[in-house]
Structure formats: C-alpha cells, structure tokens
Design a binder for these strands. Structure first.
Length: 902
RNA sequence: GGGAGUUUAGCUCAGCUGGUUCAGAGCAUCUGCCUUACAAGCAGAGGGUCACUGGUUCGAACCCAGUAACUCCCACCA
C-alpha cells in the first residue's frame, strides 16, 4: 500500500470537525478544572467571513486549543451581533426588492420580516468559522437579540436611568441620512475629502438700511459685479445650506468690517434678512473673515447660535433632502442641491469664486453616508463616572492591553469621554423602555403594566388608584438602543449574568481570560465592556486584550470589498487547507501591527503540513527488528533536550502573546530539528530495519510533535494522531484533548556539542560542494581534537550524515588534505585528487586576517583602562575568553599554513 | 491642530537590562542535486551605511536631541 506523497486536507477536515462535534470536545460546563474563557467578538449577523475574521478567529482558536491541551476547561462562546443599522438597511433593501416600502408596514410586520431574514441568512458566518476549525462551544451560541440578552439590555437601561446616568434631551447629534438615525460620535469616521470652497456674496445694509440689491434680479448682467462695500463675501463648502443661515458673524476687531457692525445681510436667492453679529470666535485670517452662521447644520454654528440667541432654521429632512423651509430646491438631495445652487448663484451674480479645498468630512461607520449634524431629541448615557474605574483597571494593570502602546490611546479617550448617544431611530433592536403619558411626561419601566403603575403614581401621587389612566394612554418610545448598548454586556450576558447574577456559569467563567479584537473597536466596545463589567459585576470582564492589526494586501492597502483586493477566505481554505491558511495568517502577525497578507504565506503553511505528512510517511514505512541494538542513543537524547528547550521558548512566546514567534519556534523545531536532523540521524538505510527502542522513542517524539502543532494545525494533527502507527486509540483519545508534553531535562552540554557536530557535517557537505564530490562518494575523515569533545561519541552521526567511511582521531596534522576547523578542532579530509593548495592557503589566510582583526578589537578593549574600570566583571571575563580562544585558533591556523607550505 | 507609533537584508519581521564572533529569522534570490519520506523537497551560498545628523558612553541597532518619511488615533476652524 502506498501513501500519497501529499496530504489532502479536504476530507480529513470535514471528518474530524464532525468527530469533534459528535464527541462534544468543544463543549464546556463548569467543573473542578481551572477555566479558560474567551467570548468571541460577535460578528454582524449579516456578515460574511472576511480576512479580518480569519486572523481574529485563528488566534482565538489557537489560544483555546492550547488552553484545552494544558488541562484547562476551555470555553469559547460564539455568537452574533444584531447590528441594528446594517441589518435594518439590509432588510429594508430586501423589502424594497419585493416592492414593500418600510413606511407602509407596521413595526410588528417589519420585525417579522427581519426575524425571518435573520433566521434565513443570519449566522452564515458561524458556519464559515467551522471551516476554519474554530472550536467554539456551539451549544452556547448567543445572539444579541435573544430574549435573555434583550431583557438584560432593558434592565440595564432602567438601572442606569435610576442612577441618573441616562437622560433625554435635544442636542446636536450625528445624523445618518441613509440609515435615518442618529449615531454616536464613535460611529463617525472622519476622512479627508477634496471639496470646493465657494465664495458667496451677501448684500448688506449698514445700520438697517439696505444699500444694494444683489439678488434675484434676472437678466441684469451682473455676473461680474465688482466687490464694493454694498456686500460681503463668505466662504463655505456647503452653499446649499445658505437658506438655513440665521446670521453672518464677523470678528469685532476686524477693521475691514467695522462699518457692518449692527448691520444686516441678505441671503442670496431667497433674500431673507439676517443680522450681522460679532464674535471673536471668527478667525480674521481664515477665508474672508465673514462666517455664515447655520445653527441647524453645524455644531459650531449651533453653539454660536445659542450664545447669540439666534433662531434655528432646519432646512433638511431626515433623508437629507431639502424641505420647504429652504424655499428653493425643495425636495432635492443635499448634494444635488449643492450642484444646482451654484448656477443659480452665478446667474444672480453672487458667486465670487470657487477654490479647491480639502477638509475632514464625517461618514457613517455603518452606511458610509455623509453625516449631517442635526438637532434632535435623543437619549444619552453619561460616561464620566463609568469611565473612571474602567481607566483605572487598565492603568493598574488589572487588564493588560497587548501591545501596551494602546494604553495611551485608551487613557486619552477615557479622560475626554463624551456622553453616549444611545437612541437610534430604527426598529431592529431593543426598544427603549420609556412610556409617554398623554401630558408628555414619561416613565421608565420594564413593561406596559409596570409603566402604567408608575404613570399613575406620577400623575396622582396621593391617590394613584383614582388615576383615570389606562394602558392605552401610554405610548412607548419608538426608538431602539444602539447595538453597542447590548454588545457591552456580552461577556456577562452570554453567561446569563443579568437574569441570574449568581448562577454557576457566570461564577465559574467570569471574568473571562483573553479578548481578541481589533483596535478599531477599542472604544466602541472594549472600553464599554470594561465599564459594564465594573458597573454590573464589580469586576473586570477579561484579563488580557489582544489587539490584532488590520489585514492589508501586499501593497499595504486595507482589504475591502470595494477594492476587490481581498481573497475569499473559503477559497483559500479550499486551496491551502484550513491548516495551511491558519499557519499563513499567523506567520506574520505581531500584535497590534497590521498584517500584510500574501497568499504565499498560506502556501508556506501548506508546505509545512506537507512536511509533517512526509515525516509520517517515513516513519510509517519502517520495519522493526527486535534483535537490533540501539545505536541511536545520542540522537534520541539530543532530541529530548532540544525538544524541551524549544518547548521553553514556545511557552515564553505564548506567555507574551507573541504568537508568530511561537509558531516560528514550533516550525523550526519540527522542520529543522526533527525532520532535517533527528530523522536523518536515525533513519535506517534503505530497506533496512530499525531497532525497537529507537522506533518507540521516535513515535513518542512524533506524537509530541503532533501535540505542539495541534493548536496551529488541528486537522492534520488529528488525522495522523489516529493512525495505527500509534496503536489502537480509544474513541475519545484525540489530539484535541491530548495534554501538551511537559518540559523535561535539558542537557546543555549535549546541545552545544551537537551544534558542533552539525557544523562538522555542514563543513563536510560544503567541502563536497566546492570540490564537486558527489554525496554518494564515501570519504575518510580525521580529526585532531583540541577541545573537550569526545568525537567517538558522535562518530556514527557524523559518518552517517556526512557519508564518511574511515573516521580517525589523530594527534598530528594531516598533510595533503582539505582541512576545516570547527570550534577549536581540526578536521582533515585526505583527498587523492586535486587538492588546490593555493585555494587552501587563501582560505587560511582569510581566516587569519579575520582573527587578527578580531583579536585587535578585543585587545583594544582589554587595553582600555576605562573599559577595565567600568565594565562588569563577567563582561571582562568573557573578553578574556574570547581573546584566548582566538589566539588558540590563530595558532592552529598558522601551523596549518606552515604545513601547507611543505 | 494634539498625541502615539514605525523606519534593521529584495519582502515580512525579531533583536529583552547598551557588552558573546551582534547585525539575526522566515520567505524570496542564486548554485548544485529528481540522493527510495518529501522538487510543496534536499545540500550549500550570497545579501545590511540598523532612515539621516549630532550627542552621551570605555562601548550604541539599542540611551538622548534634532531632521526626514510613513502609519494610526483624537480634534468643531467656515
């Protein structure tokens, strides 16, 4: 029977994932073991897997699998986020396709459609995660709009309202005209955009008397009206909002406009009179020094308006179109209106000039629509008091951010935290538990009945039974809460910590251990979870926050749908196997730094598991002869030490969350030490058997190799684990639950001496290469030993790997041989053919030159009084040793040069 | 405008408290090999002004100052 030369992942992946599921290896229930818990950052229920998820979830799975293999009770809680805006937008679009307009149906009908849609398409992403090998406890899958979780949201709202931290009020908020809802400051992404700065003339009247006509007269041929004192010019990027102007503001110290103090201006096109006000908020040297004040559509202007008691004229509808207050261009979208108003102004002779201009514009995080500052009635949550303890946890180190450079960012945000706009004008989400009374007052209550009682008490405090109010008189707030108002409860709510604050799960799993997420949502989510953790459990929600980078393409561009530069994760898995892709994701992903993704990494991952596969094929092919003596004790002893040494490294890398390094240590241990050196050392000649002891040891080593590889490459390791090479496995004896090997004794001397041996082998091979001698040709080797190394011990290894025949230990130099030096020891390969004496001499001279230079620098140090006085003793000792070694070596080379001359 | 970070081989990155022959790894490249586990491989090799300028020090990739480029976060200049 022959085994395929390459490993085919597909079949094994499906097989073992089902096997794991069937035997409930992902399932976690509280027991006496130490818990290790991760809650997944719930992806949008509407989402499909992208490269960011791949990275994020690979990391989580590696951590979870490793914890499981360290004997912990590993629990990875999966789930999805209802993502109000994004999901509602998708449902609205879906309905539109079916010819249904959201406006024409009731809230209940809409929600019915939305739930249907969620059941049908939601959670695809969780299925995709399974392909990656994610070992989540699927029985614990939660959705942020599950009944329990929604109830937690409502209770939280009531709790915070009681504390006075939730309030309602009219404020300038960020309005998303596409989602038709308010969004929080954090949901506004600012981007620099190329814009135009329009210079527009307003006619003015000094001291109340109108001086000039500029507007509305057609056919006056006034297009090039020169600037005179009869008007002023403002600069704006938003000419479509001039109809909402309620003042012109100038700096009181601006000499140019002194004559306008107390004057009036007239809005072009609609010719409405507005006052000219004075405020030193206006920069004299910016633009024209005149500012149009539009309180309804600009936050600064709004504040200015309050200060100067200006009226607010809101000319925009919720969807970003102009309303009748604009008088002109009514019904046009704000951007269309901007385009259309320009020719109108031009025609009226009131457009002075247009300049290119760059400025920051806010975009909605969820819909990418340009955000409109809008005055509206919203619900807010005070942050200040919650931010303080949440900041302390991080500053004190109760929660570690990895990498810690994010602490500064975190602190800055927490110290300048704004109140959180929590209401959203949507239907998909938790409806705010506020109930309005006919008189406009409201009560906060868990349900309508409670609300009624509260309402009665409120209206008839003395005899509330007399209140004529009925439930029909109450109207529930239409708005829902921000999605993040449910996400921030996630680490508690997934364990039912609100409904049942003392239940076994929450007591056991909370606080969770590690959180793996993107720095982009440090404030959205991580900070708020810490606040909620403190407020509702008096404890941190997690200990470590591992912040992944952004996955970028080779050119450093962020991977995005619109650029089309993101590979389809499922195709990648198809092509390179889940194991290959996982390794590919981790090969280069330092915490907090962006990941320059390149498919070649996955290829490297695939090559790696194929290497493991072929090591398996080799061992699998061996025949055992019980009569045979074990001649590989040195090799097995060495590998044991080397393995323990590597385990140490890997352990320390994991402790510091240096996952790429942990993988690389593992990679080199397996590929270089195990395959390239160890297996080559013990490999029997073709069709020769191997002794029992070596065979048994090797299989044990290989099993350990599978274990340490498992967190990175779960599928191939599980596949090989069950091969009969390891004997018959019990049904539950799986790699996924195997315990990681313990770190054993490390024989440092052996490790060092094998390094010398490896160098000897390399030099032999090198000699062959340079002399064009085939590896098949057996060569003799002599060694003149100046060190403490007992080469007899290593002779079998050297002979095998270097294809050496006669191996002799000599006391004199060997003439007529190619020589090289490893450590202090001299090696000679006597060759009957063509020894190039000149080349040998040159080699030796070159080494001499180097050694002399080296000695000089060491001696300079040692001769330097200040070095001798200041350096630590062990450093000086080391320098002395370097000097002695170099001198010995130099002496030997000199001798060799001498003997070469003979 | 404020803050943080980065800059080391062609690429992606390590380099800990300044001190081993300290300038490293993986990939890529080059040379030679289809050597009975693996060409998705084996054996070798080459490759760097540690961004730049100055300083501190016996000694600097590492500490300090300045410069440049890039990245990210925060911020209401029309």
């Amino acid at each position: 029977m022959s085994i395929s030369k390459t490993y085919q992942p597909k079949e094994a992946e499906d097989k073992w994932y089902s096997y794991w599921l069937k035997h409930k290896f992902f399932r976690s229930v509280p027991d006496e073991r130490e818990p290790y818990t991760i809650v997944i950052p719930p992806p949008n229920v509407t989402g499909v897997l992208h490269m960011g998820h791949m990275l994020n979830n690979t990391i989580q799975d590696v951590l979870i699998r490793r914890a499981r293999m360290k004997g912990k009770n590993a629990c990875w809680v999966p789930g999805t986020d209802h993502a109000s805006i994004a999901t509602e937008a998708k449902v609205v679009a879906m309905l539109k396709e079916r010819g249904i307009n959201k406006k024409d149906i009731t809230r209940e009908e809409f929600l019915k459609y939305a739930w249907e849609w969620k059941e049908k398409y939601g959670g695809i992403i969780l299925e995709q995660l399974k392909k990656l090998g994610a070992s989540c406890d699927w029985d614990r899958t939660r959705f942020t709009m599950d009944d329990d979780l929604s109830e937690a949201v409502i209770d939280t709202f009531i709790h915070l309202h009681k504390k006075g931290w939730i309030y309602r009020g009219v404020r300038m908020v960020n309005w998303d005209p596409q989602g038709k809802t308010a969004v929080s400051d954090e949901e506004v992404i600012r981007k620099e955009v190329n814009q135009k700065l329009y210079y527009i003339r307003y006619a003015v009247a000094e001291g109340g008397e109108r001086k000039a006509e500029g507007g509305n007269q057609k056919s006056d041929n006034l297009t090039h009206q020169p600037p005179t004192a009869t008007h002023l010019t403002i600069a704006t990027t938003r000419p479509e909002t001039i109809m909402a102007d309620t003042a012109i503001c100038i700096n009181p110290n601006d000499e140019r406009y002194k004559h306008l103090h107390g004057g009036k201006a007239f809005i072009p096109l609609i010719n409405r009179e507005i006052p000219i006000i004075l405020d030193d908020y206006v920069e004299m040297d910016f633009g024209t020094g005149c500012l149009k004040v539009t309180p309804a559509h600009d936050l600064n202007d709004y504040n200015l308006g309050i200060k100067h008691n200006l009226p607010v004229v809101d000319i925009l509808n919720d969807d970003g179109t102009l309303n009748e207050k604009a008088e002109i261009l009514v019904g046009e979208d704000r951007f269309a209106a901007r385009k259309k108003i320009i020719p109108l102004l031009e025609e009226a002779g009131q457009l002075e000039k247009v300049e290119d201009y760059k400025s920051q514009i806010g975009f909605s995080e969820r819909t990418d629509a340009v955000i409109e500052p809008k005055l509206s009635m919203q619900w807010f949550c005070k942050m200040e008091e919650m931010a303080k303890p949440a900041l302390d946890y991080v500053l004190k180190g109760d929660i570690k951010l990895i990498p810690d450079k994010f602490i500064n960012t975190y602190r800055h945000w927490m110290e300048n935290v704004h109140d959180w706009t929590i209401s959203r004008q949507l239907w998909w989400g938790q409806q705010i538990p506020a109930w309005y009374l006919p008189n406009g007052e409201y009560v906060i209550a868990k349900n309508r009945d409670e609300a009624l009682n509260l309402a009665k008490e409120k209206t008839h405090p003395d005899s509330y039974r007399d209140s004529p109010l009925t439930t029909d008189d109450l109207r529930q707030e239409e708005d829902v809460v921000d999605t993040w108002f449910s996400s921030w409860l996630w680490p508690i709510s997934v364990f039912d910590g609100f409904k049942d604050p003392n239940n076994a799960d929450i007591n056991y799993y909370y606080p969770t251990n590690d959180l793996v997420t993107a720095p982009e949502i440090l404030f959205f989510w991580v900070a708020r979870m810490i606040m909620a953790g403190h407020e509702f459990r008096g404890e941190v929600p997690f200990r470590n926050v591992y912040l992944t980078g952004i996955v970028r393409d080779k050119l450093g561009r962020k991977m995005s749908k619109s650029l089309g530069n993101s590979p389809d994760p499922l195709n990648l898995i198809e092509k390179y196997g889940a194991d290959g892709v996982r390794v590919g994701m981790l090969l280069s992903s330092p915490a907090g730094n962006d990941l320059m993704f390149d498919e070649s990494h996955c290829e490297q991952g695939r090559n790696f598991f194929n290497k493991v596969w072929n090591a398996f094929r080799l061992i699998k092919g061996w025949q055992v002869d019980d009569q045979l003596e074990n001649s590989n004790k040195v090799a097995t002893e060495w590998f044991k030490s080397r393995f323990s040494q590597a385990l140490n490294e890997i352990e320390s890398n994991f402790d510091q969350f240096r996952l790429s390094d942990a993988l690389m240590s593992t990679y080199k241990l397996v590929w270089d030490d195990f395959c390239a050196w160890y297996l080559e050392m013990i490999k029997p000649a073709y069709e020769h058997p191997i002794d029992r002891e070596t065979y048994t040891e090797t299989i044990k080593f290989f099993e350990n190799v599978l274990k340490i590889l498992h967190p990175f490459m779960p599928f191939i390791t599980e596949e090989l684990w069950h091969d009969e090479l390891f004997g018959k496995r019990a049904e539950m004896d799986c790699c996924i639950v195997a315990q990681l090997p313990e770190i054993g004794q490390i024989n440092t001397q052996l490790l060092n001496e094998i390094e010398v041996v490896k160098q000897v082998v390399t030099d032999i091979r090198n000699t062959r290469n340079s002399k064009q001698i085939s590896p098949k040709e057996t060569l003799p080797l002599s060694v003149r030993v100046n060190s403490e190394i007992n080469y007899k011990e290593y002779q079998p290894i050297i002979s095998k790997l270097g294809n050496i025949g006669e191996f002799t230990i000599v006391t004199d130099k060997v003439a007529g041989a190619v020589s090289f030096m490893v450590s202090k020891d001299e090696f000679y390969i006597p060759l009957t053919i063509n020894i190039d004496i000149e080349a040998e001499r040159e080699k030796l001279l070159k080494e001499t030159e180097y050694l002399i230079g080296f000695l000089k620098s060491v001696e300079a140090k040692l001769g330097n009084e200040r070095f001798m006085n200041n350096a630590k003793p062990e450093i000086i000792e080391n320098e002395l040793k370097k000097k002695a070694d170099a001198e010995t070596k130099l002496k030997i080379i000199q001798e060799n040069l001498g003997s070469l001359a003979n």
